[in-house]
Amino acid sequence: MDFGATLLPILASGLAVGAIYALIGVTYNTMYSTSRVMSFTSGQLGMLGGVLGSLFILRLGMPLIVGFVLTIMACAIVGVVTEFIAVRPVLKSLDQHLYVLSTLALALMIQQFTAIEWSTEPQPFPRLFGLGSGSFDEKFWLPVAACAFTIGALELMQRHTLVGRAFLAVSEDNFAARSLGLPERNLRIASYALAGAIGGLAGFAGGELMLAFFANGGQYNFYGFVPVALGGLGNNRGSIVGGLALGLFQQAANFLVGGVFASVAVFIAFIIVLLAAPQGLFGTSTARRV
């Protein structure tokens, strides 16, 4: 196989989309950790990161840094809105799975609103730095850098800040955390804001590759969930490994056999792995039902 012509582009684009999927997976996990809810808005946040970046920087002509900060802040707000509208009201009845419906409804609202008010066609995303070309273009390595930055920042936060430890505590044993007097509700809201920012960062960093397109939301929802399912719920490292593997697999199949069959292959692999290991490849079963 010709390294320069085939392998390198596969590697570059595979790692890039894989990093985006991995970050969406982290978005799912961050929301899940404090609320035990998987939210369909995770992928939409990624889509918004691309659309808002394009809106602020290209259409409204803001400087890069201002556009970036505004995008992340707006996505964090959407995260908090998710918590208020679609999560908190159904937390009391988690076993009825109403959250699947409430977050799906909110995700559809976000997606439809974007389609109508933004565009139903993919719109260009600004060239951010103009660094690199070919397989080393920034559009390939920016998502990877964003992914590495996020993981590093999350690890630092969990190891070295009290808030980070409190997140871990709430996620491990919500009841014990409440009995200690930890502000469980505020921590949950904060985790949704954080998830929003991570999702927004994924979409912004991947904007040059995936463009500002409303339908990315649905794609991100599914392909971002695959690494979560494979890696085990709430397991960020599993999501990163799963996301990068998924990206490489998908892009290799894309180059070698064509896009549709790549999608089919991903889907079939997803179902088979899940049926064989419902807890994910790195997850553990803990639930007692009776």
Binding site: R165, A166, L168, E172, F175, A176, A177
Partner: peptide, 28 residues
């Protein structure tokens, strides 16, 4: 905060965190 503290049953410590961190959390 008012000084009424409840130590729940089942010695539910945070297993993934150190003793020091468990204590820090109690002083959040």
């Amino acid at each position: 905060r008012a000084g009424l503290v409840h130590v729940i049953e089942g010695h539910r410590v945070f297993t993934q965190q150190t003793i020091a961190d468990n204590m820090l959390l109690a002083g959040y």
